[in-house]
């Protein structure tokens, strides 16, 4: 579980007007979010999350400042498994972002110099 995911859980609880939200997280753990003042009561039906289809693509395993591979990967390019598609820079060092599987890039939400968080999709596949 990352900070980002905890923040999303808090935001979800607030937006649904829930006072408390508890969910299972990896390795048998549980996360409990308690929001002090729920704004209003809501119908249970409205709280049911809408199914979200996870987009396939390349997600980060670190945080850092995005830097392009050389040459830069662009929308429409095909990448192969294990290909280095970009870098995440942390101060003076950089780690490779590698494609876990092959695919064709449909979207590239980040550009060089952007700050990227854990688990963000840096390349979306078609």
């Amino acid at each position: 579980m990352t900070l980002d995911e905890i923040e999303r859980a808090i935001a979800l609880a607030k937006s649904r007007g829930l006072a408390e939200l508890e969910c299972a997280i990896g390795h048998g753990g549980r996360l409990k979010v308690i929001v002090n003042r729920p704004h209003k009561a809501v119908a249970i039906a409205a709280a049911a999350p809408r199914p979200v289809k996870a987009k396939s693509g390349i997600r980060t395993r670190y945080f850092g400042v995005f830097a392009d591979a050389s040459p830069a990967i662009r929308v429409g390019d095909t990448v192969t498994e294990h290909q280095i598609v970009g870098f995440l820079e942390l101060g003076e060092i950089r780690f490779a972002i590698q494609a876990e599987k092959a695919g064709r890039v449909a979207a590239k939400p980040f550009k060089a110099g952007d700050l990227v968080g854990y688990g963000e999709t840096v390349f979306e596949f078609e």
Binding site: A67, E89, L90, E92, I93, R94, F95, A96
Partner: peptide, 8 residues
């Protein structure tokens, strides 16, 4: 070790 590079 995990490979990495210089941002410099």
């Amino acid at each position: 070790m995990r490979a990495f590079g210089a941002a410099l």
